[in-house]
Design a protein around this nucleic acid. Structure first.
Lengths: 229, 229
DNA sequence: ACCTGAACACCGTTCAAGT
DNA sequence: ACCTGAACACCGTTCAAGT
């Protein structure tokens, strides 16, 4: 923590401390490169594919070089996660839609970001909230507040919606990868059809309209939370 | 897979193959003991605390002895997870409540089981569905079906509710452990109050009524899904 | 200010044996 | 049928140096 570059004194996104040198040829190690490569690795190899050693390899450096830029592996996870959740704050000049539309837009964008990087959904709940997540929460809170949700209900509303996004994204990500497994599971289920007749009949494990379920559930929640359309 | 005890030929819960020997003194290794100890370890040490070596230590056996009973570490996770989700099928003689009450009961029991073992919520979405989970899904599907949810909407309804349970449980489990961190986070947030004014004002990270949020969200969903009370 | 290799204390799992 | 130790190919991170 002391004498070493740590989370607290990382350069703020806006101001670069000094133009140290022109990056000609092989780019030097940097926090940005590390994070970008970590995301690559996670995207291609999954959550267990991210290894400090593998990461260093891809960057063409020794393993321990990473530790000057980063506290530990947890730190890498946090940074990769927040990176993936980057968002463009909506320009104020955009035509003002309804507040409800705005909330839906935030939540769908959030979900889309996570579905693009399936590892992110299962990682997010266990980690600290990075600036990008806080930014999205702020947008959401703002929209809800303006949509007429009372201050006393605001936290409950936010968490309900958060839960819906997290739950549906995690479920979808984990069930999507495994088409064959899914068929096999339904097969196994058929063998036990006397124990699970209802879900066997509805073919729960086979066809599921994830996007539809997300939208429907979202509408129900919003109807309940902010009846003043 | 071949020649070795694997998932497929595990003894069915009901019938013990033969009373091999009276377990006097140190109990021998068995799948039940392994799973029970794994749950212990997970409860006390968290998800990273479960190690094949540590598990063997606690059981007083060599590491490799475990592998006769179990395929690999993933298998241990699956078994521990399903164990923790055991439930008593409701006795048919219980006074028949409304179908909606029944669905709520299933979902709350499910959530309670997971909250008792915080690691389980974050594990479940990534793993295959064990018999106990399927059992709970069947109960739920049945209740919904009788509550008037059309067959065509059944899967969507199940997944929406599943998502709600998963999301709220995971969120709560991950935010509950860290009282100090939470205060620190809110503190940090206060320093950035011009960037996140709304969630700073609502003290989102401090007070949140998890149980209330769960119940409210659940009611909204059920209202929407099965309007025919 | 930045990067490094050697070393430590761990992992999960294969294999070839033992009873 | 059940259990074992040695060995392999990995991990994350500390430390003491190098430039």
């Amino acid at each position: 923590m002391a004498g070493k570059r740590s989370g607290k004194n990382r350069p703020q996104p806006g101001k670069s401390p000094r133009p140290t040198r022109e990056p000609r040829g092989e780019p030097p190690l940097s926090l940005e490169r590390i994070v970008a490569t970590a995301v690559e690795l996670l995207d291609t190899q999954g959550i267990d594919g991210l290894t400090m050693r593998r990461l260093a390899d891809r960057l063409g450096s020794g393993v321990m070089s990473l530790y000057w830029h980063v506290d530990n592996k947890e730190d890498v996870f946090d940074l990769a996660l927040d990176k993936v959740l980057e968002y463009r704050a909506p320009s104020d000049r955009a035509e003002p839609q309804g507040w409800r539309q705005e909330a839906v837009h935030v939540l769908e964008g959030w979900r889309a970001s996570m579905l693009r990087h399936p590892w992110s959904a299962s990682l997010l709940p266990r980690r600290a909230l990075g600036p990008n997540i806080l930014g999205r929460l702020e947008l959401l809170a703002n929209a809800l507040s303006k949509a007429g949700v009372a201050d006393a209900d605001l936290n409950v509303a936010i968490w309900s919606l958060w839960n819906h996004v997290m739950g549906s994204t995690i479920t979808r990500a984990s069930f999507e990868l495994t088409d064959d497994d899914q068929a096999a599971a339904q097969q196994r289920l058929a063998g036990l059809s006397e124990r699970y007749p209802t879900i066997e009949r509805s073919r729960l494990l086979l066809d599921s309209d994830w996007d539809g379920a997300f939208r429907k559930g979202l509408d129900y929640l919003l109807d309940g939370l902010a009846p003043i359309r």
